[in-house]
Design a protein around this nucleic acid. Structure first.
Length: 831
DNA sequence: GCCAACCGGGG
DNA sequence: GTGTACGGTTGGC
């Protein structure tokens, strides 16, 4: 089907030009409240819309005596419509598709009728429409946006949003065991302050002041890191206990909707559906930067941690003067030096703002395309959560029936072949190049016009094409605009949002029975062509005599001759790329000084500026004893540089350090997370002992919590010693540290239990009575073993033999003659 | 050694 | 008000 560009853009961006929407609230009775920003002012308007549900037939409705009235497009305005009637529109489409668009002034009433009819038809009880494939419904806000063609943020820049960051400091992680003593608040209009409750009785006041402050500042968005996982649940529980209402919503919404509301989000259907708490409040978007971080890492896959401080450093937005306090020290620091905790908490909200600027531009741009709330688009899955609502809106706009997922799709979940994975060589390579095909799957879809068969209007391919073109334009515009300008940010964020959608297109087709437009055959065709492209690249490299290392889906690692320059490497990639079908682009992704290939997707890379990058489980230590970690990095580096004697030295020095007990116990300790309650463990202790629990018991502890981390080491007497550290959360019997009342200025403050624990912990960490033989065995069997594939078997034995003297009896070659197993090119002779 | 189950983050 | 993460780690057999 041919589409005009105008129509394509209506598919992609909606068609209603209403500018500046910053929040929408709606209910199942067709009432919507829309807040629009015009500069510093926010206008609130009350709208009506027709709640709707899609159906494959009218039989359930007629069976329960529903009075139906057919309409051409929309029913008459709600105020003039007959209240008892169900209106419907017939959409274009074959039998079995969602051909009937049902409207009712009260969606709950409509759903009750449909459920009654369906229950009668099927002869079983039904709790919700979701159990039936005969109906398709979306939330009220989505209904409103899809019906009106409106989207958030039209003609608005991210910088115009009024964002507020909120961070709570509490005396414990669990609201049943601790309380809020400080809240840091800042916003994008210059606010930066703290609210404090040093004494327990001040907490209700703090919560009330916090609500007042938020309502007075009136932000569009409330942000924090782990907002849904920590701050809001904590705040909710404390407010509940103290009887303080959490009125955080915006003027204009019904009173009940202005209260903070909790709801469960079901993450996956399966034997055990995982649930997660979410919160919502009318008129403000609640945004968790942790969600944005997860999504970012989903693409880049190189973030070592999602913790706020780590992420801030990762993005280079952590200030040099930033105050750091270990989690469990915050309460006591506040007692002694409250100013320091204020700085710390304000640094937190500052970093959250920085993260927001860095990461939330893309969801912001998505919200100006997809018919969903901004807060949902921050964490929505790109396929079902973003792309599908766009497709649904397009079909409804075109008056076309939506396809119903076929039975075929139900059985095809992940059954087709995916990308190709090859391991060509193990060992150590130098002068390594990585080349990959840019956006392989979307390029294949576009080049070979592979879309879902059920997409009768061809919307998916149409918007994929439009997105690809627009993305290039925005990328270019971002380059042209002054760096850091609002304009540059806008184009950069828009291209990032478009990239998310482009990459979702393939995954969406393979999404299985839950996706309306799924087509496993089309998805299989995409991966088949993908494998063919990868094979073609691999063969081209092989023919030229380059040393293949590994290939995965859309990229390949190989080694080039040592004398090659980067220009030659790039020229080779360009040359091979020229042989690929037009529309498929091979890119030069990077070059590495060396690579240690261990297994598929398990390798180490050494960059030309000396950074060591380790990929995959097999090369990482799961136990993470610090001495072993240090050895492994040192040995990997030396191996990749071909400095075999340094590998040997690293090994011998580590063995020697263990023997001489030069390392403190903390260096050999491992950390484990407990899963069993004391009851469970004591029940099975006779038959099976576990070191982590034994360590706690030996230290006199009989109480612990599943989830607690325990650091311990093993002594020569085969005993396990607990090393409490800053991650240990122990609640002292009297909970005396919950009382934050300032202590008298003069005189010594008595040590709290936690201080005693930590003080003795420092002494323990310095002890040297560990099991030397055990840790030497561990060094060899767990850490050195990861280098096995870098050397010939006899060389490996020689390198990691503890005592060189013993080897005098065996015939060994001198260390100087040992080399890693090199992976090298065999260039065809040019004669 | 292999597989299923669990976790991520927050004070 | 609904959405299909995923890759690393741990614990049990």
């Amino acid at each position: 089907m041919l589409c005009s560009q105008e129509q394509e853009d209506a598919y992609l961006f909606g068609w209603n030009p209403t500018p500046g929407i910053v929040s929408v609230w709606a209910n199942r009775q067709g009432e919507a409240v829309v807040w629009r920003r015009e500069g510093e002012r926010v206008h609130c308007s009350h709208e009506r819309f027709w709640p709707w549900v899609l159906a494959t037939s009218l039989t359930d409705l007629t069976a329960v005596g529903g009075r139906l009235c057919r309409v051409a497009v929309l029913p008459p305005p709600l105020s003039e419509a007959s209240p008892g009637l169900i209106y419907y529109r017939e959409l274009d489409g074959p039998e079995g598709t969602y051909r009937f668009l049902l409207f009712c002034a009260d969606q709950s009433r409509l759903e009750r009728m449909l459920l009654r009819g369906a229950a009668r038809r099927l002869g079983r009880r039904l709790a919700s429409l979701a159990e039936l494939e005969d109906y398709y419904a979306v939330g009220p806000v989505e209904q409103y946006l899809m019906q009106t063609g409106q989207v958030y943020f039209r003609d608005l820049a991210y910088e115009h949003l009024h964002r507020l960051q909120l961070d709570l400091e509490t005396t414990a992680l669990d609201p049943h065991r601790g309380r809020i003593f400080l809240a840091a608040v800042r916003d994008s209009r210059g606010l930066a302050t703290t609210l404090e409750a040093p004494r327990e009785e001040d907490e209700p006041r703090l919560i009330r002041d916090l609500c007042d402050l938020i309502c007075q500042r009136d932000p569009d968005v409330i942000e924090n890191h782990n907002l849904f996982g920590f701050d809001l649940p904590f705040l909710e529980e404390r407010a509940r206990v103290l009887g303080v209402p959490l009125m955080l919503g915006r003027q204009g919404a019904p009173e009940a909707a202005r209260r903070l509301r909790r709801y469960q989000e079901t993450l996956a259907i399966g034997p055990e559906a995982r649930r997660r708490l979410r919160y919502s409040v009318a008129g403000r978007e609640l945004v968790d930067t942790l969600d944005a971080v997860r999504r970012h890492d989903f693409v880049v896959r190189d973030m070592p941690s999602y913790a706020l401080k780590d992420v801030a450093r990762y993005f280079g937005i952590a200030s040099a003067e930033r105050t750091y306090i270990a989690g469990m020290d915050i309460v006591e620091t506040y007692r002694r030096d409250p100013e320091r905790v204020r700085r710390y908490a304000l640094d937190d909200v500052e970093e959250v703002d920085g993260l927001s600027r860095r990461l939330l531009g893309a969801p912001f741009a998505l919200a100006s395309m997809a018919p969903r709330r901004y807060e949902r688009l921050v964490s929505a899955g790109p396929a079902m959560g973003v792309l599908e609502p766009i497709l649904v809106r397009s079909y409804l706009r075109a008056g076309a029936a939506l396809p119903r997922p076929s039975e075929q799709e139900a059985g095809s979940d992940g059954l087709y072949e995916g990308g190709a994975v090859h391991l060509f060589a193990t060992g150590v390579a130098e002068h390594v190049v990585k080349a990959d095909v840019a956006s392989l799957y979307p390029s294949l879809m576009r080049t070979f016009a592979i879309g879902p068969r059920c997409d009768r209007l061809g919307v998916l391919l149409s918007i994929l094409g439009r997105l690809t073109d627009l993305r290039l334009q925005h990328k270019e515009a971002a380059r042209q605009a002054p760096p850091g300008s609002i304009e540059a940010n806008h184009h950069a964020a828009t291209q990032a949002a478009m990239k998310i959608l482009i990459n979702a297109a393939y995954g969406y087709m393979g999404a299985g029975k839950m996706a309306l437009f799924a087509d496993a055959q089309a998805a299989a065709e995409v991966t088949r062509r993908g494998r063919a492209i990868l094979d073609q690249v691999v063969e081209a490299l092989r023919r030229r005599g380059l040393a293949l290392i590994e290939a995965d889906t859309d990229g390949v690692y190989f080694a080039v001759p040592p004398e090659w320059s980067e220009e030659q490497e790039r020229a080779l990639v360009t040359e091979i790329g020229a042989g690929l079908p037009s529309g498929i682009r091979l890119e030069y992704e990077g070059r590495y000084r060396a690579m240690f290939s261990h297994e598929v997707k398990n390798y180490a890379l050494l960059t030309y500026d000396g950074r060591l990058i380790v990929h995959g489980v097999a090369l990482r230590s799961s136990r993470a004893e610090p001495f072993g970690e240090r050895f492994l990095r040192r040995a990997l580096l030396a191996t990749m540089l071909g400095r075999v004697h340094e590998v040997r030295t690293a090994y011998l020095e580590t063995v020697e350090a263990l023997r001489a007990r030069a390392l403190p116990a903390a260096d050999v300790a491992t950390q484990v997370r407990l899963t069993k309650t004391p009851e469970t463990y004591f029940a099975s202790r006779q038959s099976h002992q576990e070191p982590a629990y034994e360590a706690l018991i030996k230290a006199g502890r009989r109480q612990w919590f599943p989830g607690e981390r325990v650091r311990f080491y093993r002594t020569a007497e085969k005993q396990y010693v607990w090393l409490p550290d800053e991650n240990t959360e122990e609640v002292p019997a009297g909970q005396e540290w919950l009382a934050l009342a300032p202590t008298s200025a003069e005189g010594e403050t008595p040590l709290t239990t936690m201080e005693r624990v930590r003080q003795s912990s420092k002494e323990l960490a310095e002890r040297r009575d560990y099991d030397v033989e055990y840790y030497i065995r561990l060094l060899t069997s767990s850490y050195a073993a990861r280098l096995r594939k870098a050397f010939a078997p006899e060389d490996f034995e020689a390198l990691f033999r503890e005592d060189r003297q013993l080897s005098l009896f065996a015939e060994t070659k001198p260390l100087e003659q040992i080399q890693p197993r090199w992976i090298r090119c065999q260039l065809p002779r040019s004669d």
